[in-house]
Design a protein around this nucleic acid. Structure first.
Lengths: 236, 236
DNA sequence: TTGGCAAACTAACACAGGTTGGCGCGCGTT
DNA sequence: AACGCGCGCCAACCTGTGTTAGTTTGCCAA
């Protein structure tokens, strides 16, 4: 089983064997397990470590005083949280595990060492950050202007590609270990409506979601339904 | 009148006089004027230059095939668009002028030269990018979980701080040169509803918006109404 | 001054999506 | 086996926001 982080980085840049070894090393030290529904990094903390997700799904979220929760990003295996978090002081949001999660803790020094004299790694990390920002922009557009079905279809398409690139999708079938309330908080809706929308996607023959696995039955159809254009995810 | 870009950078890091001169130099070369409603950088182009907004307001936006437009970021004087855009290939969105705009075109080399041997500038640019990402996250939360009034109040609070830090606000009065349809596309609503919401904010005595200027009559009240916590904008 | 036009503003109506409340299943615990 | 409980699922109802179709205002140009 190959490291999903390395695998993803190789989509951005060509890595020499030593590059690969260095990145792989980051994923093998300081492993930490976090139970589902627990925070990996709480709100208002002053982060020092970066986290690399090795297994399970997590999210960035903001919680309002009255309890409303907005999930602003999904973190999948191979995703790196804030390589430069330590430069910003206090967290303005939290990072929580949606499922049981395995992460590697990485120090700023380790990032610095990995980058030094390794232009491919530097370039790869830079592109990874740009890709993350592009995803953020797409989410703003989604929540702002897509309808409920479009939003859900679009998210499924995005996750399909991201998981494929991390080596975690089985063709057109992907793990989908999150609950409907989680999807609701990610898409700015209620779980009830997510349920309705899911039913509609299912009955149009586009997807099957059962026992935490999503099967896309009609990829082109789903992409059309979600106004999905993979360009924003493509590196270069 | 001081350069809003330099002014903003000084919120992130302490700049030596030479740092300041270098940054100021970037803003004085290759000036370009763009009329309102024109694209500064079209969609699907392969950008080479970075743009620094010197005057006027612009936005990043995505447009769907059926015409719907989502504004995913507002660009104010002093804002730098994509210092690393050239690393990503094709644009996944467009940058458009909302008002007549003056920009400085900056090449990748110029960025490289400015950063080389100038750790304060490097650190400042890095923090500026992190702040931009934090704004993106806050927008996702806003469009996803805030009500219409909360969203508008929150946006006004954000713009108040950003413009203040760029030296463009007069205490609690700020330029607001965008139309209601523009606000609608930025907040994921219709212009009709923006109008309704504006009326409500006005009649609760929180703001006055007249002839392209916004006056905040009750800053604390507006912040409360918008669930606004300036933490996400604060550098370190 | 007048005319033209974009933008602000409004009213009436429509509907997507939120709210509430309830049922049943699967699963882990005792 | 029984219990608890989170989650998926559903129906009825409600409401915030969208839609449509105007009128009014303000500003620039002739």
């Amino acid at each position: 089983m190959e490291n999903p982080f390395v695998r993803k980085m190789e989509r951005h840049v060509r890595l020499a064997p030593e590059d690969r070894a260095i990145l792989d090393g980051l994923a093998r030290q300081h492993i930490r397990h976090v139970a589902g529904r627990q925070d990996i990094e709480g709100p208002h903390t002053e982060p020092y470590h970066t986290h690399l997700i090795l297994d399970g799904w997590a999210c960035r979220y903001k919680q309002f005083p009255d309890g409303r929760r907005a999930i602003v990003a999904l973190l999948l295996p191979g995703d790196l949280c804030d390589p430069f978090a330590f430069r910003r002081g206090r967290m303005d949001h939290a990072i929580g595990a949606l499922t049981p999660v395995t992460v590697a803790r990485i120090t700023p020094d380790q990032i610095g060492d990995a980058v030094r004299g390794r232009p491919a790694i530097e370039e790869g990390l830079c592109r990874e950050m740009l890709a993350t920002t592009a995803i953020h922009r797409e989410w703003i557009a989604s929540v702002g202007r897509r309808s409920a079905i479009e939003r859900l279809a679009h998210l499924f398409c995005e996750l399909h590609l991201r998981l494929t690139w991390a080596g975690l999708a089985d063709g057109t079938t992907l793990p989908m270990p999150v609950t409907q309330p989680d999807l609701a908080d990610a898409l700015g809706q209620t779980s009830v409506h997510i349920n309705r929308t899911l039913k509609e996607l299912r009955s149009s023959g586009l997807v099957i979601l059962r026992s935490r696995r999503l099967t896309i039955r009609d990829l082109d159809g789903l992409r059309e339904r979600g106004l999905f254009d993979p360009a924003y995810l493509q590196p270069a």
